[in-house]
Design a protein around this nucleic acid. Structure first.
Lengths: 239, 239
DNA sequence: CGGACATTTGATGAGAATCAAAGCTGGTGG
DNA sequence: CCACCAGCTTTGATTCTCATCAAATGTCCG
């Protein structure tokens, strides 16, 4: 029980699980949470086929999840930043179905799921919040489905950048200047494209002055264009 | 309260929500469920931006869900067959985020969500089952992510056929001969490809004797090949 | 029977993957 | 503290899968 920071002291509590729990009951939640030692870049938090016991909230750093197909291909399925919860895809199978790997030094809070279920029986708002969390994950997946099914490579990259931007803002950080925790490979894989294409798109965005890119440092210069993208036929004529 | 069939009498109960509820408590679940009048092909069960009140279990027929992007493009996000639950993506937003439309005459059971939450407080196995249902949806989305991100058009079509086959089997129907409830357009849209490509792939599968296709009637002739797909380089040489 | 829509087939083209190779970076150890 | 190396990133050339365009055919339903 080394790194004992209670939810009370955690700066993420307004956007993390405590959000759903009245101050009077926060201790109950706090008691079931384990704070692990930091993960180093490349360390696995869990692997597919590990028994499923817990979900995890990111406290610092960043992780990715990925699945591996029968023929050995990896598919990055998500990026997780501080305040976000991962591991929920294992609930239905008693074992994890994806792998979770630290993209950089990271700390997580472990939340044993059966205890969380018990606690949810006593705290309706916690049950509700957890349903919402999972629902949110499903909703995001629907949007991703649209992105992968219907959108161009440029749209996909823009969309990921805007998502990261919004999530930074949610944590009270700058939404215009931030650092990508993941490699171009991870971005490409997540978005279903080749690394080279991601790289070229960063270059193109930069030439158009929509973005300033220095390695993994990103500055968004023209959010409107990045949102709208170039699909508006009227727009194209005026350029 | 017209079409009153209780869960007790429903042939789907072994694969639907009642699966999670002890016989003694089934009445409680039964009482909160509304059985609506049948939907005709093309009718909407709900639309994005409708208030979210309920989730729905399919009793007969089939539905699709879809989202519409800012620029008006539709993306089919799922197909729902008897015994399956839809609408869970609306939990987190208080309104639905997708649209649900009947692909053919269909009946559904409406399950008011707040009552389901209350009941879940009393029946732990129901809470657990619902977590599992949502987790399952997330897991399926991860697999779809892989499909859209990494797999060829042929793989995608094969994979959808196998999924429908498995879901038919789960309902006690034939897993080799079944009818597609959706159009080629819906298949193409769901899988992120053009109608013409879907059509060509059906033709190709048929020429290889992996499949017999008559309109929407499907017969799977060579399941192994359909699963394995054509990634085996040795195989390609011999053809 | 007719018409709208669904499906199939063919020809062409575009976007992005792949192949190839040259910088760049950051972490490690001397 | 700096040099080195593996892995990351960029850029260019070529290829290929699949989208798009066009049009014929089929099918279901009123």
């Amino acid at each position: 029980m080394s790194h004992h920071v209670s939810c009370n002291d955690c700066s993420l509590s307004p956007i993390c699980l405590p959000l759903a729990v009245a101050p009077a009951q926060l201790d109950q939640l706090d008691r079931i949470i384990h704070r692990g030692r930091p993960l180093k870049r490349g360390d696995h938090l869990f692997r597919a086929a590990d028994g499923f016991d817990s979900v995890y909230a990111v406290r610092s750093g960043a992780l990715k999840t990925y699945v591996v197909s029968d023929d050995g291909e990896e598919q990055v399925t998500g990026f997780y930043l501080p305040g976000e919860v991962l591991g929920m895809d294992g609930i239905s199978t008693a074992h994890h179905v994806s792998n979770a790997k630290a993209l950089e030094t990271a700390t997580v809070c472990e939340i044993p799921f059966s205890q969380l279920e018990t606690l949810s029986q006593q705290i309706p708002s916690l049950q509700h919040h957890f349903f919402r969390l999972m629902s949110n994950e499903i909703r995001a997946d629907r949007e991703l489905h649209m992105l992968l099914g219907k959108k161009s490579a440029e749209d996909r990259v823009a969309s990921l950048l805007l998502s990261l931007s919004a999530r930074n803002q949610r944590r009270g950080l700058s939404d215009n200047i931030f650092r990508l925790p993941m490699s171009r490979y991870d971005i490409a894989n997540y978005l279903g494209m080749a690394v080279e294409t991601v790289s070229r798109i960063f270059t193109r965005f930069q030439q158009q002055n929509w973005l300033r890119v220095t390695g993994r440092e990103i500055e968004i210069l023209d959010r409107a264009r990045l949102c709208g993208q170039n699909h508006d036929p009227a727009l194209e004529l005026t350029q």
